[in-house]
């Protein structure tokens, strides 16, 4: 076993040597991971957003939205991939379906909660002034729901990127391919890829946090300041929105 053979520092040194020698390979796999995760996130958004916004706008199906979200979060990523290995076999489709399913719950729960929770008096005023329902959704509810919705998207990205290396066991490619293939790459390769995956996940989260700050409407920031609350909600708040009610009990 590698850790027995070399000292602690040596193992990390080796992994950095691996990075130096295989930079283009790692970059290539990183791009593949980004493409895979991005595509899965995109599909999850396209499938979930309209549905969740619509439910939230109508204030309907809160039980269902939260139940789907909770059901989703009880699904182990590895187990999902395994089940789809049984159903769809090895390949891109399997991985894609599994990652999309992983990505949906936070988007669903947060988008629903955010739109459903928009101040009803604000919506009443909008309607009373003669805004059409579509206008209310796009000009009032979505801007006001944006921070919490975006927190859900961040969480979803976190889940998807977190699961993407696992997808390698089903032929998903990317950096996970190296991590699960110690026989070919050695432990220095595994460690190098692991460090890159971790860095990628952290980088993406940092960028999304900046983006979230940028797209949060100024008026909401002013409101939060006036109330002494924080403006930008983080991944942990998104997790709170997903917390289970004892609905299935």
């Amino acid at each position: 076993m590698p850790f027995a053979a070399a000292g602690l520092g040596q193992q990390f040194l080796d992994s950095f040597t691996f990075m130096g020698n295989n930079t283009s390979h790692l970059l290539h796999d990183t791009l593949a991971t980004i493409a895979l995760s991005g595509a899965a996130l995109g599909v999850a958004l396209a499938v979930t957003l309209p549905f969740a916004v619509w439910l939230g706008h109508l204030h309907r199906g809160s039980g269902m939205a939260i139940r789907i979200a909770n059901l989703g979060r009880a699904l182990p990523e590895l187990g999902l991939i395994a089940i789809f290995l049984a159903i769809l076999g090895i390949g891109f489709l399997n991985v894609m379906v599994a990652l999309v399913i992983v990505g949906i719950p936070p988007i669903l729960a947060n988008t629903f909660t955010a739109v459903d929770g928009v101040d009803p008096d604000v919506v009443d005023a909008a309607r009373g002034m003669g805004m059409s329902e579509l206008w209310i959704v796009f000009k009032i509810e979505l801007p006001l729901a944006l921070p919490l919705m975006f927190a859900g998207i961040r969480t979803s990205a976190l889940f998807v990127i977190g699961a993407s290396p696992l997808a390698a066991i089903a032929g998903g490619g990317g950096l996970g391919e190296i991590i699960v293939n110690q026989a070919s790459y050695g432990f220095d390769g595994v460690l190098a890829a692991a460090i890159w995956v971790a860095a990628l996940a952290l980088l993406v989260q940092a960028l999304l946090a900046l983006l979230q700050r940028a797209i949060t409407p100024e008026g909401l920031k002013a409101q939060a300041r006036a109330r002494g609350e924080k403006v930008v909600v983080g991944i942990s708040d998104a997790e709170r929105a997903m917390e289970a009610t004892p609905s299935h009990a």
Partner: peptide, 17 residues
Amino acid sequence: LRREIGYVIQQIGLFPH
């Protein structure tokens, strides 16, 4: 119809954004 009628509620409902 609503665009022709002014509407004020107790909670005001100003658009915060």
